[in-house]
Simulated assay, not measured.
Amino acid sequence: MHPNPPRSRRRPPPAAPPHTRRTGGSDDEEPRLYTPAEAAVLLRVSESWLRRRAGRRQIPCTFLGKHLRFSTADLAAIITAAAEPATGRRPHRRRRPPPTPSDLPNPESHASITDATDTNRSET
């Protein structure tokens, strides 16, 4: 007789349901939640900006307990809220014309600094 083979104490991993297929990027599968670091890279903003706004509830986000996450819908809403419509070209700033001699103060009405310091000196 053959001895019984030793039984493994490990359980096999659960089989995936037959209707679930992993194709890699479809949104109709399971929802994807991004960490603040991943979301910041996708939005091209700093992670601190993202965390600060989410903490103040100024942007849509998802809290899983104490963990901050961003769904694809959250990221789309952040982008939509930040979008500004094109308003055309900005008007040019008018430059101030250079001062004319009449705009300058009259030099005779003000004492110059060098004159004031020369008269106040006492020689010893």
Rank of each mutant, 00 (worst) to 15 (best):
K66A: 13
T117H: 11
G65D: 06
D115K: 07
I113H: 03
P107L: 11
R96A: 13
T117Y: 13
A54H: 00
R9W: 10
F70Q: 02
S46H: 11
T100V: 09
R21L: 15
I78Y: 04
T23M: 01
S46C: 06
E108A: 10
P31T: 06
D27C: 06
S8M: 09
A83Y: 15
S109D: 15
P13R: 03
E84V: 07
P31H: 04
G55S: 11
G88E: 04
P6F: 05
G65C: 06
R93F: 02
G25M: 08
D74K: 00
L50R: 06
P101H: 13
P99L: 15
P107A: 13
E84G: 03
I79P: 00
L64R: 13
R93P: 02
R22P: 04
A15T: 02
E29T: 13
R10L: 12
P107S: 10
P105W: 02
T23I: 08
R89I: 00
G88A: 12
R56Q: 14
P18A: 11
A16V: 05
P101R: 13
E30N: 04
G25S: 14
R94H: 12
S48N: 12
A86P: 02
R51A: 05
D103K: 07
V41F: 04
P14I: 04
A83F: 12
G24L: 02
G25D: 06
H92C: 06
P101Y: 09
E38F: 03
P18V: 11
R56C: 07
A81P: 01
L50D: 05
S46A: 11
E29A: 15
P107K: 03
R44C: 10
D115M: 04
F70L: 01
P97Y: 07
R44W: 03
P91R: 14
D27K: 03
T72K: 09
D118M: 15
